[in-house]
Amino acid sequence: MHGYLVAYLNIQPFIVTLAGMFLARGLTAEVSTEMIAIKNEVFLSWANNKIYLPFGTVNKKGVYLPAYIYPTVIIAVLVVLLIFLVLRYTSFGRKLYAIGGNQQSALMMGIRVQRVKLLTYTLSGLLTGIGGFLFCLNSGAGFVEQAKGLEMDAISSAVIGGTLLSGGIGNPIGTLFGVLIKGTISSLVTTQGTLSSWWVRIILSLLLCFFIVLQSAIAIRKRKRKKI
């Protein structure tokens, strides 16, 4: 639905997706405002499964602690790599970058802009569903207030990872590093002990502003070079 509204009715993407988010959150609140624990045995077995690595650490008591990761990490990394390959080595990816860079030029090149946009939003919905599934594997429950505010984390991670808000430049690998930077900042603030958790938001906001200003400065410099 979002893809059709943006591609064929030319409604601003930010307005469409924001309205869709509020609609989905409101419908979820109508279903239940209480936390619902997931009791499906197959789901819980996936959530509790661990993949042990061939190395580990030794604590202060001399006990060996094996290192492990959850299957959700592997799934997330595979999805990132798959999207990177799609964007870099397929015609769909090249068309997407062309539309993001200059939609009018993409039209003149013969690209079916509306169709590509619709496919892009369909793919985005699929990836959102995968993300929600992985999030539930981690939390083991569902609640209407879950993931509230994560949309700004997603935007900040993408921008910090090198994605231009104006479009045409960016890749999921850079966004992955943006997520890792956000996670590192969150861990440092948490382990520091004396700072409020709100400092994570403050630092991320400052980083976001810095990278947006940096992107604008680079864009202005490129325009000046083209005029010369």
Rank of each mutant, 00 (worst) to 15 (best):
M1A: 13
H2F: 08
G3F: 05
G3S: 02
L5P: 03
V6M: 06
Y8M: 03
L9W: 11
N10P: 02
I11M: 04
F14Q: 08
I15C: 09
V16G: 11
A19C: 06
A19N: 11
M21C: 12
F22R: 14
F22H: 15
S32L: 10
M35W: 04
I38H: 10
K39I: 04
L44R: 12
L44F: 08
A47I: 00
L53T: 04
F55K: 05
F55I: 00
T57W: 13
V58P: 06
N59I: 08
N59C: 06
K61C: 07
V63W: 12
V63R: 15
L65T: 09
P66D: 14
P66V: 12
I69S: 00
P71T: 01
V73N: 04
I74P: 00
I74F: 01
A76L: 01
A76N: 02
V77C: 04
V77Y: 03
V77F: 13
L78W: 04
V79C: 12
V86Q: 13
V86C: 09
R88I: 08
S91I: 04
R94E: 06
I99T: 01
G101W: 11
Q103R: 09
Q103A: 05
L107M: 06
L107D: 08
G110S: 01
I111Y: 02
R112C: 01
R112V: 00
V113W: 00
Q114F: 00
K117D: 00
T120G: 01
T120R: 02
T120V: 00
Y121T: 01
Y121Q: 03
S124I: 02
T128R: 12
G129H: 07
I130D: 12
I130N: 13
G131K: 06
F133Q: 09
C136H: 15
G140M: 00
G142S: 06
F143N: 11
V144C: 05
Q146W: 05
L150T: 11
L150H: 07
E151Y: 13
S157E: 03
G161E: 05
L165F: 14
G167A: 07
P172W: 06
T175H: 14
T175Q: 10
F177K: 09
G178L: 00
V179R: 06
I181Y: 00
T184A: 10
I185Q: 03
V189Q: 05
T190P: 02
L195F: 08
L195D: 01
R201T: 10
R201A: 09
I202N: 09
I203S: 05
L204S: 02
F210L: 15
V213N: 09
Q215A: 03
A217G: 09
A217C: 12
I218M: 14
I218Y: 11
K224W: 12
